[in-house]
């Protein structure tokens, strides 16, 4: 399980709004830092780390919603929800494939064939599950989602 990142420039005395902005922006940047690896798809840790960061980001947004203008907040929240959701489908399959591959070694030769067939089916499903995730990333880039998100949430001092 990924550990929490250190959030800079927050303190008990600062206002909730200022700290909420710092936390949300930090987790957004953390989430996006794993995107290239998630697109590549070779190492499953990137999808995992990006998804965990998106969940932390959502937890922050759930907690601090009252600090922000409702309509724009809602629009950004829905996009983050979409990111978590499409990545979740891929991650769930990564977990299953890894688990069955581990189990494979403890089975007899005849039993292994059954599970090998299941792994192949899951690998095909994973390939399909990656498509909506990749399409979403392309769409978000085309709409400059990252810039819009940061412009809305970054601290203006």
């Amino acid at each position: 399980m990924s550990t929490a990142i250190e959030i800079k420039d927050i303190s008990p005395e600062k206002t909730l709004e200022t700290c909420a902005r710092q936390i949300i922006v930090s987790y957004f940047r953390e989430m996006m830092s794993h995107k290239t690896g998630a697109i590549d798809g070779t190492d499953i840790k990137f999808v995992h780390d990006m998804r965990v960061a998106s969940r932390r980001l959502r937890a922050a947004m759930d907690n601090f919603a009252d600090c922000f203008q409702k309509d724009t907040f809602k629009k950004h929240y829905k996009q983050i929800q979409m990111i978590t959701r499409t990545m979740g489908a891929v991650r769930d399959l990564d977990v299953l494939i890894a688990r069955f591959q581990r189990e494979l070694q403890s089975l007899s030769g005849a039993e292994q064939g059954d599970i090998q067939g299941l792994i192949e089916q899951l690998q095909h499903e994973r390939k399909e599950a990656r498509k909506p995730m990749l399409n979403l990333f392309t769409e978000l880039d085309a709409r400059d989602f990252g810039i819009q998100f940061l412009t809305f949430f970054e601290v203006n001092e």
Binding site: I10, P12, E13, T15, L16, C19, A20, D62, D66, C67
Partner: peptide, 16 residues
């Protein structure tokens, strides 16, 4: 998640 109520964005991080 259950909706968080009673926040005051202009009060301190600690109080919230």
């Amino acid at each position: 998640p259950q909706k968080i109520t009673g926040l005051n964005p202009k009060q301190s991080f600690r109080e919230n």
